[in-house]
């Protein structure tokens, strides 16, 4: 795992993701404190007085959550590139099982993701402490759910990377599945009257519900209409259920990757 992690840390995409998440966090802090963004978007004053630190932390740390997409770029080529680039000729004829190789690579990608997302959360926590004198407990819970999302996202990317021939295909397939397929299915289920609590995209909403804020109260005013927005503000997924669900899905996908990768030949 050590050398896989070293490989991840030496790639431009790692530093790119790190810089983007830190810049986005700094920008969101500047918007909140310098431009009074939270007041301007119509959050009720009484809620800002009572839960100012929570709302600030929720807003600022949500920038770090976007960096979860970096996981796709770390993991998308982790397995496929061994076949595509030909490095498998070097790696596979060693006395180590394929499953050990997959697990080592997975842990390295997970760690790289956590490092990027964790840096954003740390900066958000420091900013929250600097402006409000405390760090909301809900932030730890939100970070916990974020870790579960990282388990899931890396698992999904590994599943495609172990199956598809090219790294680019695996990365795109992961992004499309997460951003288009899941949300389409979730929306369709919602319209059909079935609560899609088990869908991964829905479970990721639990990142916000750990702060103990009613999103409907906080953001309801700014959302106006539209089914999607309405659904979003109503979302208050149980963080524990979401954590277990995402971790479970992630580990199942990792299991599939181990099985699939073990059967691929280096032709």
């Amino acid at each position: 795992m050590r050398y896989e992690f070293l490989k991840q840390c030496r790639r431009r995409r790692f530093y790119g993701a790190l810089v983007i998440v830190l810049l986005a966090t700094v920008l969101s802090v500047a918007l909140c404190e310098g431009w009074d963004l939270l007041e301007r978007v119509g959050i009720p004053e009484w809620l800002l007085r009572e839960k100012g630190a929570e709302l600030f932390a929720l807003w600022v740390s949500s920038m770090s959550a976007m960096a979860l997409l970096a996981a796709v770029f770390f993991s998308g080529d982790a397995l496929a590139s061994e076949f595509e680039q030909g490095t498998g000729y070097l790696l596979f004829p060693n006395p180590v099982s394929r499953s050990t190789l997959v697990l080592g690579k997975y842990l390295a990608c997970f760690l790289a993701t956590v490092l990027v997302v964790g840096s954003g959360f740390l900066l958000s926590a420091l900013a929250t402490f600097a402006f409000y004198g405390r760090v909301p407990v809900g932030m730890a819970g939100s970070f916990g759910v974020t870790l579960a999302i990282a388990v899931f996202m890396n698992g999904l990317a590994f599943a495609f990377s172990s199956t598809l021939k090219g790294s680019m295909g695996a990365t795109l397939a992961t992004l499309l599945t997460y951003m288009v397929l899941f949300s389409t299915v979730s929306t369709a289920l919602s319209y059909a009257g079935h609560e899609p609590w088990f869908m991964p995209d829905r479970a990721t909403d639990a990142m916000a519900s750990t702060y103990g804020i009613s999103l409907e109260e906080a953001f309801g005013g700014m959302m106006g209409g539209g089914q999607g927005m309405e659904r979003m503000v109503r979302a208050s997924e149980d963080p524990v259920v979401a954590f277990l669900l995402l971790t479970g899905y992630g580990l199942a996908l990792l299991g599939f990757s181990v099985w699939r990768f073990g059967r691929r030949e280096m032709a």
């Binding site: 070293l6 490989k7 030909g86 000729y89 070097l90």
Partner: peptide, 15 residues
């Protein structure tokens, strides 16, 4: 117990 060199070798460019 084997040392293997198969096909045109490719390595991890970052190492």
């Amino acid at each position: 117990g084997a040392g293997v060199m198969v096909e045109t070798p490719e390595f991890y460019p970052f190492l």
